[in-house]
């Protein structure tokens, strides 16, 4: 029996080692849970090509120039090819991304398969009209300063749910600093409670379910 072994035995008899093992286990699982797990949970996807909001913002009036409301009150969301081709019939600038856009999408007439960061689950009914038109909110409150971005961040998809990471937020613990950090139901509700919007539920005395669900 070596000295070390003796020591081990002594310690284990005295109860020192279990604490050590406990700490090893604890730190291991903390590392897995806080660092490795989020990396595994999300897969990174690149947008079809990059887009510069700043560049486009200079040429149009405001966000609604491209992200507009339809006559029936619905919100068009990410622009369709038809809107872009007004300017992009052929290559305007000298970026590689624009070349991809024109060659791969404009010319064959194919819609760009944008990955939408703020895409909500199918059960959600989100009314842009209620927020922007009736509520007078700006885009930034929910979408953040995306208008000031010069390039698109990678789209991170939750491997289990298939939803964008922007919904849960980038902080794995779900902690948010800005209003636009998360897009979960509680975040919507928080504001609705504060603003006293449709607080007509008999069950919860908060927002009725059919305000934001369909």
């Amino acid at each position: 029996m070596s000295a070390l072994e003796e020591k081990t035995k002594a310690v284990s008899d005295g109860g020192g080692f279990p604490t050590l093992f406990f700490i090893i286990g604890l730190s291991l699982s903390l590392i897995v849970g806080w660092i490795i797990f989020p990396k595994l949970l999300y897969s990174k996807k690149q947008q079809p090509f990059d887009f510069n909001h700043v560049l486009h913002n200079e040429m149009v009036e405001d966000c609604q120039s491209c992200h507009f409301f339809r006559e029936d009150g619905s919100f068009a969301g990410v622009p369709k090819l038809a809107q872009c081709v007004d300017c992009h019939m052929d290559i305007q600038g000298d970026t590689e991304d624009e070349a991809i856009f024109v060659n791969e999408y404009v010319i064959p007439g194919r819609e760009v398969p944008w990955l939408v960061y703020s895409e909500q689950p199918d059960c959600v009914f989100f009314s842009h009209a209620a927020h922007v038109k009736a509520g007078g909110m700006d885009c930034k409150t929910c979408h953040g300063p995306i208008g000031q971005s010069t390039s698109l961040k990678p789209y991170e998809e939750n491997r289990i749910t298939g939803y964008s990471r922007d919904i849960w937020g980038y902080n794995i613990a779900g902690i948010k600093k800005n209003t636009w950090d998360r897009m979960k139901m509680d975040d919507c509700s928080e504001c609705h409670v504060q603003m006293d919007v449709n607080q007509t539920s008999v069950q919860t005395e908060k927002g009725a379910c059919f305000v934001c669900h369909k």
């Binding site: 539920s201 008999v202 069950q203 009725a208 669900h213």
Partner: peptide, 24 residues
Amino acid sequence: VSVCPATVTDYSTETGIVSQIYTR
């Protein structure tokens, strides 16, 4: 409405409509 254990179904006093949230 009163029996649903998970607050899936609800009554809105704004519209008088009984809602049902399938994902809940």
